[in-house]
C-alpha cells in the first residue's frame, strides 16, 4: 500500500467515526428533548448538519424544524439554495428576520452596517417564542480558541448565555440534556470535525452546496485585508477600488463582513487541495467579526451568539 493510499484509508475511517458520533448525538436529542430545532442558513456547516440529520432518522423524515436568523444581508445564491433544500426534503423552516427587530425598534442598526452581532437577539427571542429546548448548531471546536472548550451539549441560561463555569463535564458518550424551564441546550454534532473533515465528507457524500463556495467571477473591493462584495448592505467607500476577480467563499455569514478569498477551486476536490495547502484558518481569512479583538468570540458566546 502506498503512503497516499494509506492516508486515504485513514481519512475515510476517520470520517466514518465522525459520522457515527454525529448521528448518535442527533438521535440522543430526538430521544430526550421536546422541541429541538436545527439552525440552518444554507451555509456549508448547516447543510452538513442537515445531511447528517437526514441520515440519522432515515427512512423517517427529520423530526425537527429548521431555523434561519436572516440578517437581510444575504447572498442570493444561498437563499435560493436554502429554499430548494427545504422544498426537496419537505422540511419546516422558521425564519427570524433581523429587519423586523430593527423596524419595531427592538434593535438599532450599527454605524458600521454589520448585522452579524444583531443576530443574537432575534435568535433568543425566537427560541423563547417557539419554546425550542435544543438548538443544533454547526460550530466546531477547531474554529477558534474559545470554541475549543465548548461542550457538545452546551447549557444556556434563561438569557441564552453561555457560562463557562456552569458547563457540565462530558463523559464517555453520555450526554446530560437536563435543563430548567426557560433554559435551553445548544448542541454541536460537528464538534470534533475539522475544516478538512467537513470538505472530505462533503466530497465523499456528494453533498450539494451553494455555488458561492466554488470559484466564480465577482466584483470585489479590498477592506481590512478582505475582499468584500457590493450588496444590500452597501458597497465600496471612496478610494476603495472595485475589481473583478475569481474568488470563492470559505464561510458564509452576513454579507457586510464575509470576505471572499481569491481561488480557482471550482470543484470539491480543488477545494480540498486548497484547504490542505491553506495557511489561514477559515475564520481568520474571512470573518471581520472575529477580528475585532483577541477575545471577540468568547465575548459573543457569553452573550448568546451561536
Amino acid at each position: 500500500m502506498t503512503t497516499l493510499e494509506a492516508a486515504t484509508d485513514a481519512a475515510r475511517d476517520n470520517l466514518i467515526a465522525l459520522e457515527s458520533e454525529a448521528i448518535h448525538i442527533f438521535r440522543e436529542v430526538a430521544g430526550e428533548f421536546d422541541r429541538p430545532v436545527i439552525l440552518f442558513s444554507g451555509g456549508k456547516d448547516s447543510t452538513l448538519l442537515l445531511h447528517l440529520a437526514i441520515k440519522a432518522f432515515w427512512p423517517a423524515p427529520v423530526p425537527f424544524p429548521l431555523l434561519h436568523v436572516d440578517t437581510g444581508h444575504n447572498f442570493e445564491e444561498v437563499i435560493d439554495f436554502r429554499d430548494r433544500v427545504v422544498e426537496k426534503y419537505g422540511l419546516r423552516l422558521v425564519v427570524a428576520h433581523v429587519q423586523d427587530w430593527i423596524d419595531d425598534g427592538r434593535l438599532v442598526e450599527r454605524p458600521d452596517g454589520t448585522r452579524n452581532p444583531l443576530q443574537t437577539q432575534p435568535l433568543l427571542d425566537t427560541i423563547t417564542e417557539h419554546k425550542f429546548d435544543a438548538v443544533f448548531g454547526g460550530g466546531r471546536r477547531d474554529e477558534e480558541r474559545a470554541r475549543a472548550k465548548e461542550r457538545i451539549f452546551s447549557l444556556r441560561n434563561a438569557f441564552g448565555q453561555w457560562e463557562p463555569r456552569r458547563q457540565r463535564p462530558e463523559l464517555w458518550n453520555l450526554y446530560n440534556g437536563r435543563h430548567r424551564p426557560g433554559e435551553h441546550v445548544r448542541v454541536f454534532p460537528l464538534s470534533n470535525w475539522t475544516e478538512a473533515d467537513v470538505w472530505n465528507y462533503i466530497a465523499r457524500e456528494g453533498v450539494d452546496l451553494p455555488s458561492i463556495y466554488y470559484a466564480h467571477k465577482r466584483k470585489v473591493y479590498r477592506r481590512d485585508g478582505m475582499w468584500l462584495t457590493e450588496g444590500p448592505w452597501g458597497g465600496p467607500r471612496e478610494g476603495e477600488k472595485v475589481e473583478e476577480l475569481t474568488v470563492r467563499y470559505r464561510t458564509v455569514g452576513d454579507g457586510s463582513c464575509t470576505g471572499a478569498v481569491e481561488s480557482t477551486a471550482s470543484t470539491v476536490e480543488d477545494v480540498i487541495a486548497e484547504v490542505q495547502a491553506s495557511r489561514l484558518t477559515e475564520r481568520g481569512a474571512t470573518r471581520a467579526d472575529d477580528r475585532l479583538s483577541e477575545a471577540a468570540m468568547e465575548d459573543r458566546k457569553r452573550e448568546g451568539y451561536f
Binding site: A6, A7, A10, A146, A148, K149, P164, T194, E294
Partner: peptide, 26 residues
Amino acid sequence: DGLRSEREQGITIDVAYRYFATPKRS
C-alpha cells in the same frame, strides 16, 4: 490557552479539545 480569563492569569481552567493530523492518523 483559550479563554480570556486564562490568558490573563496564564493558566488553563477547563478541558479543551485540539485537533491535529498526520498522513497516518487523525
